[in-house]
Simulated scan of single mutants.
Amino acid sequence: MGGALSLTIVALAYPTMLGFNKVSTAQDRVIAQTQWGPLTEQDRDFVVKVRAAGLWEYPLGKVALEKGTTPEVKEAGRHLIDGHAALDAACRKIAPMLNVTLPNVASPQQQGFVNQIETSSGKQFDSNFANILRTTHGSIFNTIAKIRSTTKNSLVRSLADMANDTVLDHITVMEKTGFVNFDQALFQQTTPPKLPDTDLTPPAPQPGAPMVVLSPPPNPTSTPIAIPGEQAGAGASPSPTIG
């Protein structure tokens, strides 16, 4: 899949501590040598993190189309669906090439965000949606820059390029809703809650469970990931979809 694979170890341990405030603690230890360059712990964790982000933000994009009270909130929902469907496809494409295990559900913390937003309505929904997603995107934005500037793996670098554009777009559309409290967002980004690792880590998928796929919208606008030397037709077999 995607060319010959040359890993120095057969399986990579499922990562831990993947909360958006934890990436800076990920070690630079190389865990595999691949044809696309060395893969570090933080490279692997980044791929998992991008996948986990889509598992909670993509469904909320659909909720925003139903419950958003303004055109701007609904438009932000469309951007979440489009962007995370494309990032999800990218993660599912490169994960088997790097022998990285992807989650099928988001972390408990992320699921808590979903519950808080979904259970609200009216202008409170709009406010919760815009502020929580602006804060989380603002936090991961710094992580993407760190990965992009340090990784020696070309597949991870391509994913970081794509994630950078997508997250900047999502930050922008959240701000355009007019509901973002910038003081609150900055405070929450710079002083994240200290949660146990179990709350910040998406659970490993059940053995043999089909991979969840985030279906793209009818007219997607996001550009697919560019894979150096990829073979036409390579890709993962889909499974249950969300969409």
Rank of each mutant, 00 (worst) to 15 (best):
G2C: 06
L5R: 10
L5C: 07
S6R: 13
T8C: 11
I9C: 02
I9Q: 08
Y14S: 07
M17S: 14
M17H: 12
L18V: 10
L18W: 01
G19H: 02
N21H: 09
N21R: 05
K22M: 12
S24A: 13
A26Y: 12
R29E: 15
A32M: 07
T34S: 14
Q35P: 02
W36G: 02
G37R: 11
P38E: 04
Q42D: 13
Q42E: 11
D45P: 00
V48M: 00
K49D: 02
K49F: 06
R51K: 10
R51S: 04
A53W: 01
L55T: 10
W56D: 07
E57C: 04
E57I: 15
Y58L: 09
Y58N: 10
P59M: 11
K62H: 14
K62E: 06
K62T: 09
A64S: 12
A64V: 05
E66W: 13
G68H: 08
P71Y: 02
G77N: 07
R78L: 15
H79P: 00
L80A: 08
G83Q: 09
A86T: 11
L87W: 05
D88Y: 11
A90G: 11
C91Y: 04
C91S: 14
A95S: 08
N99Y: 06
P103T: 15
P103A: 08
A106C: 05
Q110G: 13
Q110I: 03
V114A: 01
V114Y: 04
I117E: 00
E118H: 05
K123D: 09
Q124R: 09
Q124A: 10
D126Q: 06
A130R: 00
A130D: 00
N131G: 00
I132C: 00
R134E: 03
T135W: 00
H137A: 03
T143V: 15
T143S: 10
A145C: 11
K146V: 13
K146W: 11
I147G: 04
S149F: 11
S158G: 14
L159W: 00
D161L: 07
D161P: 01
L168A: 14
H170F: 09
I171K: 00
I171T: 00
M174E: 10
E175D: 15
K176R: 14
K176Y: 02
D183S: 10
Q184R: 01
Q188E: 14
Q189H: 07
T191A: 12
P192M: 05
P196G: 07
P196Q: 08
D197Y: 04
D197Q: 11
T198M: 08
D199P: 02
P202N: 06
P202R: 03
P203N: 01
A204N: 03
A204Q: 14
P205Y: 06
P207R: 00
M211G: 12
V212H: 02
S215D: 15
P216C: 10
N219K: 07
T221K: 12
P224C: 14
P224A: 13
I225Q: 01
A226N: 12
A226S: 14
P228M: 10
P228L: 08
G229T: 08
Q231Y: 07
A232H: 11
G233C: 09
G233P: 07
G233K: 02
G233L: 05
G233S: 07
A234F: 14
A234I: 15
A234D: 15
A236C: 02
A236Q: 03
S237Q: 10
P238E: 10
P238W: 05
P240G: 04
T241Y: 06
